[in-house]
């Protein structure tokens, strides 16, 4: 089984406040620490487990600048066999569709049976997997939370659907799956592992090698125009209810009746 996992280097925003830059065109990235998108670790772990079960190889691929190489090495230290960096100045500013198009071009250069992505990334849209599948005309399932039988024709999977429920499907290969957190426990990567992959050659493919025109990628290929980033109104903070426990609760329920929180 030849497996490709799409990964992304992202600023770690989850435990930090984020500031919008002066022009309102992006967030202030300077002070942020970058790492691999947390969701992608689950996809890489799952790929490694599949490979260990049925054989084959795992390749990780990312679209980004030269600094994105570090996340490729990190995931290789987890156990991926190969890494590819898709990098070109003209890729800058690509939206989800642009990124999917770039990865598609790489997929067509190789021969993969299965493509995994994380369920979503920092910006929260979680759209690249579905777009990539549509471009390749491969079947796609999102939010995969369990992966059961696998053979060279099909996989039996479970998707997380609303209410934390499970939907079991059989999907034909080749296919694209977005992997939900919780499907496995991504292995820990130690310094030693990272050191081992530090000198591995990571091939870099640009627009020309991928046969992509500069109009189809980057900002010119995007059909969303980002106007403005802003921070939501922080609100005023809580009105702390005072009194005895009984008084407080009575007051709260009255307030909620008025505010429409309860019927």
């Amino acid at each position: 089984m030849e497996i490709l996992v799409c990964i992304k280097r992202v600023p770690d925003t989850s435990e930090n406040e984020i500031i919008v830059n002066r022009n309102g065109t992006n967030i202030e990235l300077e002070d942020l620490v970058y790492s691999v998108n947390e969701w992608d670790n689950y996809a890489v772990e799952e790929a490694i487990q599949i490979r260990d079960r049925v054989g084959g190889s795992v390749t990780v691929v990312t679209v980004g600048d030269e600094e994105a190489e570090e996340v490729v090495r990190r995931e290789m230290a987890m156990g991926a066999d190969k890494g590819i960096l898709l990098s070109d100045e003209v890729f800058n500013g690509s939206d989800g569709k642009g990124v999917a198009g770039i990865i598609k071009a790489e997929v067509e250069k190789g021969k993969y049976d299965l493509i995994l992505t994380g369920a979503l990334a920092d910006d929260g849209a979680g759209q690249v997997g579905g777009m990539l599948a549509a471009m390749l005309d491969w079947p796609y399932a999102s939010l995969v939370i369990c992966l059961e039988e696998i053979d060279d024709k099909k996989i039996k999977i479970g998707r997380e659907i609303e209410g934390g429920n499970l939907e079991m499907l059989e999907i034909n290969l080749p296919c694209v799956l977005s992997i939900q957190t919780g499907i496995n426990e991504p292995r820990y990567v130690g310094i030693r592992g990272i050191r081992k992959t530090a000198s591995v050659e990571i091939p870099v493919h640009g627009a020309e090698e991928l046969g992509l025109s500069s109009e189809s990628v980057g900002e010119s290929g995007s059909n969303l125009k980002r106007l403005d980033y802003f921070v939501p109104d922080p609100g005023e903070g809580a009105e702390i209810l005072e009194g005895s426990a009984d008084e407080i609760v009575e007051k709260l329920v009255e307030l909620l009746k008025v505010r429409g929180g309860i019927k």
Partner: peptide, 8 residues
């Protein structure tokens, strides 16, 4: 974006 910390 970023889980609602930023709006665009």
């Amino acid at each position: 974006m970023y889980g609602g910390k930023i709006l665009a």
